[in-house]
Structure formats: structure tokens, C-alpha cells
Nucleic acid binder design. Sequence first.
DNA 1: TTGTACGCGTTATCAC
DNA 2: GTGATAACGCGTACAA
Lengths: 327, 327
Amino acid sequence: MITMTGIAKLTGVSQATVSRVLSGNTAVDARTRHKVLECVEKCNYQPNIMAQSLAGNKTFLFGVIVTDIGNPFFAEIVKAIEEHASSNGYSLIIFNTQYDKTREKSYLDVLKRYRVDGLIMVPDSNEDEYLSPLANYGTPMVIATRDVSILDCVVVDHFTAGQEVAKHLAQTGCKKFVYIGDMHVREDKGPGFISSLKTMGFAINDDFTVIEEKEVEHTLTTTLTAKFNCNEQKIGVFVGNDILAMESVQIIQDSGIEIPKEVAIVGFDNTYISRMLRPRLSTIEQPIDQIASLAVGRLIELIEGTTVDRTMHQVLAPKLIVRDSSK
Amino acid sequence: MITMTGIAKLTGVSQATVSRVLSGNTAVDARTRHKVLECVEKCNYQPNIMAQSLAGNKTFLFGVIVTDIGNPFFAEIVKAIEEHASSNGYSLIIFNTQYDKTREKSYLDVLKRYRVDGLIMVPDSNEDEYLSPLANYGTPMVIATRDVSILDCVVVDHFTAGQEVAKHLAQTGCKKFVYIGDMHVREDKGPGFISSLKTMGFAINDDFTVIEEKEVEHTLTTTLTAKFNCNEQKIGVFVGNDILAMESVQIIQDSGIEIPKEVAIVGFDNTYISRMLRPRLSTIEQPIDQIASLAVGRLIELIEGTTVDRTMHQVLAPKLIVRDSSK
DNA sequence: TTGTACGCGTTATCAC
DNA sequence: GTGATAACGCGTACAA
């Protein structure tokens, strides 16, 4: 592959001059510039970023660590990050941790070796004791879709989202409630859901049940029929993400329960799944493009130092999208 | 960030010795080795891959260019590639072209600048005239999930898959057939489907219809009801991918047509969608992990030169998975 | 305006 | 067994 020195030899100038022409910072004779650019064009010269980085201390790389690219929500996030990064001249080195903290740690080391300019991360946890090493990582970093206090982050307000879902389900006449998902980790939508139920006067012990993700298949139908048979009160189900909601809908329908007549259900993420499912799935929208845009923007600010030295805590409003599954 | 020279100063040896210790190629005094390793550990020294690459001409990077990470099938492909690459010491620079040939071309240049060791690519076309520039790209490359003649590739045999679907649908009693998807681009499943229908004696003009992806919403129901009302013969529908199949199923059900009684339907890709939909969706499985493994394996062979100089054309067998939607 | 010379952090080839 | 020293491809201060 042709180098600057190669171009220099071909055009009869020095390598430094070629560098000047390409960087454009310094004045160069018009004829020289033209001659060099012509040759650069003809040879399809591509600068060696590895060398640039060594000399100039910049790699134009963002590291991206996510918990699961297979999840369409994260896939869309990555897609949007790529979009914004590349339109700002940055490329992405991507790692998938599959919710494995060991892999996450080893990937952080790999990214150090590449001297990436910045890091966007969806960590496997949001506990401070776990995140504090990250605060000393030494490279600008923004946490996406996870609410952390000690680092810059961009999140949707899950607590409020949970509250809105609770209010919405109550309004549609639900008297009993189920939350499907992991209650105690990473996110606040479950707690928000409960909090609002309490405020509205429901009894958490009697009127509310949590079903863990892995138990859905075995527990959901029996839970719902038990609840419903009890006094034929409509049940409101809030599910932590659209995939799981889709699965839940299918299970509910398999057992002959009617949606939304007997059971109203709301998902989370507003992926294409919620649009395409029947009944169309009510869900909470996360503004993916905005999340990506803010994360990338902030990261660039941090890299360029054009920002005050405080941690940013960008909280976006969730948006309830009501469709057929909860009407 | 600490460098080799830094470690050298801290331990009172030369930078060359540190390099030897870390590479392990040359003999080093046991005490020296211990001292150096201790310091390396303590400082969490991470070698600068940019510098390694300049000196040693290796970046341990794979470029990955896909048409759409948002598509769960490609997301899973990327995930599997990441898995195999990283267990072989390679990291991934990923680009999303969104089916845009201009972006694809510009990304190819960017990857040149990073001097990636190899490239795995899902191109936006499989026409030779379009692909031929790639053959001269100058970096080892493997094409994934797209059948090309002039480059190394790993694909599932779409033509055979189409044939199998046709036979299966005919066996379940279908007399009329619909293919939903783009017929003339990139893939052979549509042609395979038709070919087999012909062989079985169906009339392509009378018994067979193609519906383009964008027309599904408007055309599908009318086409099916017209076909069915005609003489109440069961219709077999083959859809180019699971997402589109999901959408089709919902549309069909909305119009009161029964699956699989009146219409049998088969998707493609065997994503989680096909497992979770109701009725459970029959589909063609693409062995994602195998595709990724073969692509990465071949790429490493090409990079290390441990291979004969012929283009590899790895064709994997499709696998029909029969579920409720076509029983 | 242009060329020379040095440094970035490695690897690899020499001598000692 | 170990320490200088020359690349690798680029940016840049300095000199001309």
C-alpha cells in the first residue's frame, strides 16, 4: 500500500510537503499542491491511521461495548451510534459481552490497547461499586441506556415510564397487575410501576405479582387465570421489553385469554415487534436516535475538552404509545 | 498511559528487554523476567497496538461491513463473528451500509486506512461487475451470506431452500402459491421456489404470484382472498425473511383467513421471531454460528497464508423447520 | 514555500 | 542474556 513517502518520491517533493498538502494547515504552492493531490488521487492513497495515531495521538476510534447485539433494541442503538460516529469521522470497534462481566473487563483492556479516543458502553450493571473502576479508566466514556451517578450517561427515565404504564393500565380498568421482568437489576421501571400502583391505592401483596423472565413460560398462564377467576377483574401486565412481551402475548393467547378484554398488556422499547404484533402492542418508546446522538455528541465534547468538568446526567422522557393491546 | 520505555525505566532494564519478556520469543534471565512482569502487572501495562502494527504490520482487526445491523439475522451474524474473531485474538471494526453502495465504498476506504488484517462483508449486491473491484481490494476478504463467484464466500444454498419449501407446501396440499420478497436481487430462493413448482407441474402464470416487500400491506389480503375464493384451494406462501413473514401473518390473520387451514406460510432465517410467533412459524434455518465460524476461519487462513490460492465457495445446506404455520 | 530531522511505541537485527 | 539501533508512516518544529 502506498505511503506518504511513496507519493513524495513519485512527485519529487519531500514527505513533509505531502503531509502539509493533505493536512491543509500550512500554506503550500498551488502547483505543488495540485501535483501532489493528483498523485494521491491516482494512487488512491489512504493515510495509515495507525501511524497518524502514533504521531498525533488520535485514533478516530470509538470503542462500543454492549451487553447483547442480538437484542433488537441494542442493535438499533449500535446502528444509530455508528451513524452519528461515522458522520463525525469516527469508526467503531464493537464488543458484545453477552452480560458477562469477565468479558466486559477483558474487552476494556483490549480497547486500551487500541488507544480508542472514546468509549460508549452499555454496562452489565449499574451498581456504583462495580462502575467505580470505570471512572478511572482514563479514556472519555459515556454510559448509554443505564442510569449511573458517577459517570456521564444518557438514559430514558425508566421510573417515570413505569409510573405512566401503571396509570394507563389503571385507567383502562385494570384492578390486578403483573410485572414481567427482572425487578432488582439495572433498571427502575419495575419500581416505578409499583410506586404508582401504591399511590393509586392498590395493595401490593394482593393486587400485584412479579414474574421473572425465565419463569414466564411456566407461570404466566396459571397466574393470570388464578387472578382472573378470582373475581373477573381485568389484569394489567407490564413487560420489561418487547421481545418478552411478544412471548407473553403468545402464551396468553394460547391459553384462550383475551387481549385486551381480560388482560391489557404493555411492552417496552417500541421495537418493530410492537408494531407488527397482533394485537398491536402498547409500549414505551425509547428515543434511540436521540440517545445515540447525545451519547456521541457528549463523547466528542469530552474528547475535545470543550466541556465543563462535570458528569452529565442526561435523562430523556419516556413516551407511552398506546396500541390495541391495552385499549 | 504507560509504555514499554516506562516499564523499562521503572525496572532498570532496557526497553528491548521488556519487549523480549512480553513477546516470550527470546531467552531472558528468570529474575529479570519476573521483575518486568511484576511491574507490567502492577501498572496494568497495555501494549499500544497502533505501534505494534506500525512495526510488525499487523493490526489484529477485522473489518465488518453489513447491509443492516438492525435486521436480527445480520445482528446475530455479527454477534457470532465477534465471538469467533475475539476468541482468535481479533477485534471488529463494524460498518452499517443500510443498503447504500456509496457508503459501502467509502467504508472500504476507511478500512484501508486502518490497515485491517481482513474483511468480512455482506455486500449490497452479488453482481460480478459490482464485486470485481473488491477482488483487487488487496486485503484478505470473505463474503458472508451472499453467493459470489469471484470471491471467497460462505452461503446457504438459497435455491435448494426455495425448492424444499415448494415441495413442503405442495405436500401439505397447497395448490396455489405466493412468494413475498424481492425476486430479482441477490438471492436465489425465489427462483428455486418457482423452479420446483414448475417441476411439480404447476402453472406459473395461473398458480403463482409474486408480491414485492413494499406492496405487502396493500396487496396481500386481496391476492389471497381472490385466489382462495376462486376455488377454495389452499394457498402456500413463502416469505423471504422472518420479519416480513411475521408482518404477513398478522395481515393475513387480520383479514380473517385461517393459518394453516386456508393459507400455509413459511418464513426464512429461523430467528427468534419464528419461534415466538403464533402460529409458530415454519421457516428455513440458516446455521448462523457455522457461517460465522467458517468465514472467520477462512479469513484467518487467508491472512496466515496457510491455504491454497483458490477461491473458496462454501455452500451450506438449508434446513427446513416445520412448525404450526404449515401443518 | 519547502526540506531536514526528530519523535511517537513497537519489533527485530545487530553487536557485546 | 542484554543493550543499542534501525525501521514502520506520519506530524511538526526548525532551518533554509
